[in-house]
Write a protein that binds this DNA or RNA. Structure first.
Length: 480
RNA sequence: CGAGGUGUGGCUCAGUUUGGUAGAGCGCUUGGUUUGGGACCAAGAUGCCGCAGGUUCGAAUCCUGUCACCUCGACCA
């Protein structure tokens, strides 16, 4: 594809410096501001509006699959966090502790939640008594804190916003089904609402969540060839239930442990949107979550009739999409660049020439195509064009992922060379030994992203690292 | 957290080597002319030089600490 002309000089080109491009976009599009606390971000109105739209869309999907929202405490007593061994080992290095209440030292220190499994378990132990109490399908929207060593807006912040679903089931089968169901909810959301193609798969033991029996993931590929885990779903078995003494009387009148899941998606997904769809002119937002879907820009707005017409279109479109009009006295060129930077999917230009011809000019953000639309057809064309933008964005992201996904069938030297020369997803066979994962990380700088559900034909019968018999195909890559 | 780099009006930076009256462009405000890809003219406002200590008659400049951002590692959603 021909390279798009760069119209926004303030944004560093992504080919020159991808990390700087990311920072520029986040700041120029007014998504976040830095705060006085290390690693904590201020999400500004435009950025928060994106998050609200994500919440709205996802929350409906959770409700549609039978879940209820709750609110859990912010603090976790140390003794509660300690109850599940793997879990505490996984999170202990990055929790923040509260040791003082006012001027009094606390007898037991409280951790600021890094995730709420323990809180949900503590509650479930008190409210689950019978199989009639199951399943419990809870979700909460909240922020959590992890004491990260290096941070970047959206991608890794010390405090981040997310939802965490926590469910309890009568049987393992039901819980596993739930784990998969929610992974599919995330995958559908990414593809249908965010226009981000994802690969569904399972994490290796090395990469799975602390305390989980199985972790499922959706992995997306960013513009620079790095992977971003965009949502996860965990199956816990009855490990936490045993640790927290959660029991219920079953249908056969025996005491049993319920089976548990948890699943989450965070503000990090906004980073995925930026790095999947963005270009050198700034953000490109998927219509489903764009705070403004259509921006009306009057041309020669001082001329009689132009603003009246623009207002008329604004009123007309208000019923069918999120639309705004910019009648400030900035030049049209300035407005074009501004709303491209902010990723508004459609720009609608209306000027004297258009009014004369009963038309307007609509410009797509994703490919900059200019489309002349009759004003009589506006209300049917705009929803179609929004859908076209979504489809175009999805296809473009999918094509790029395809061109950056490749197989390595040889041995260690081949994958080391591939990892250093071709960014992207590397498909290669693996024997299942964690030592091979460690070696690949050390020597090739890549980690296993997932074992994709879609295994199709085996790529090779030999592990790419050690040459022993391969058990599965793994997608490897560098990750955020 | 380790190695390296950068912090000067809102933004991009000059000035730091060799201590001596804080600068430019863009942006902002006001007025006017403009308006189909970041318009033009005129007049104005804006700074404890990231922050805290120290050295000095005197610090943007030298020293110490600290915070933030960028790059590469390690850790991680």
């Amino acid at each position: 594809m021909a390279k798009q002309k760069k119209l926004v000089e303030e944004i560093t080109s992504m080919d020159v410096d991808f990390a700087q491009w990311y920072t520029d976009v986040v700041k120029k599009a007014e998504l976040v501001d830095y705060s006085g606390v290390r690693g904590c971000m201020v999400i500004r109105p435009y950025g928060y509006a994106i998050w609200e739209n994500i919440q709205k869309n996802l929350d409906q999907r959770f409700k549609d699959t039978g879940h209820e929202n709750v609110a859990m405490p912010l603090f976790i007593p140390e003794s509660l966090l300690q109850k599940e061994k793997d879990h505490v080992e996984g999170f202990a290095p990055e929790v923040a502790w509260v040791t003082m209440g006012g001027s009094e030292e606390l007898t037991e220190r409280l951790c600021v939640r890094p995730t709420s499994e323990t809180l949900f378990c503590d509650h479930y132990a008190r409210v689950i008594h019978s199989y009639r109490d199951l399943p419990k399908l809870y979700n909460q929207w909240c922020s959590v804190v992890r004491w990260e060593k290096s941070t970047r807006p959206f991608l890794r912040t010390m405090e981040f916003w997310w939802q965490e679903g926590h469910t309890m089931h009568e049987t393992a089968e039901e819980a596993i089904e739930e784990t998969e169901r929610m992974l599919n909810v995330y995958a559908d959301f990414c593809e249908q609402a965010l226009a981000i193609p994802v690969i569904k798969g399972q994490k290796t033991d090395k990469e799975k969540f602390a305390g989980a029996e199985a972790t499922y993931t959706i992995e997306a590929l960013m513009h620079d060839g790095k992977a971003l885990q965009s949502g996860t779903s965990h199956y816990f078995g009855d490990g936490f239930a045993k640790a927290f003494d959660i029991t219920f009387t079953g249908r056969d009148n025996t005491l049993q442990y319920p089976h548990q899941t948890s699943w989450g998606m965070s503000t990090r997904i906004i980073g995925a949107i930026i790095m999947t769809h963005g270009d050198d002119s700034g953000l490109v937002l998927p219509p489903a979550i764009a705070p403004i879907q259509v921006m009306i820009i009057p041309i020669a707005q001082h001329k009689p009739g132009v603003l009246d017409k623009a207002n008329e279109l604004l009123l007309k479109l208000k019923n069918i999409c999120r639309v705004k009009m910019d009648d400030s006295d900035q030049s049209p060129g300035w407005k074009f660049a501004e709303y491209e930077m902010k990723g508004v999917p459609l720009r609608l230009e209306i000027g004297p020439k258009d009014i004369e011809n009963n038309q307007c000019v609509v410009v797509r953000r994703d490919n900059r195509e200019k489309i002349v639309v009759s004003l009589d057809e506006l209300e049917t064309r705009i929803p179609q064009l929004l859908q076209d933008v979504h489809d175009g964005m999805y296809q473009k992201a999918l094509d790029r992922r395809k061109s950056m996904t490749y197989e390595v069938t040889g041995g260690l030297d081949d994958i080391i060379k591939a990892a250093s020369t071709r960014p992207g997803f590397i498909k290669a066979a693996w024997c299942g030994d964690v030592k091979c994962e460690e070696q690949l990380k050390e020597q090739a700088g890549i980690t296993s992203r997932c074992m994709p559900f879609d295994q199709k034909e085996p790529i090779s019968d030999k592990c790419v690292c050690c040459g022993k018999e391969a058990k599965t195909t793994v997608i490897w890559g560098k990750a955020y």
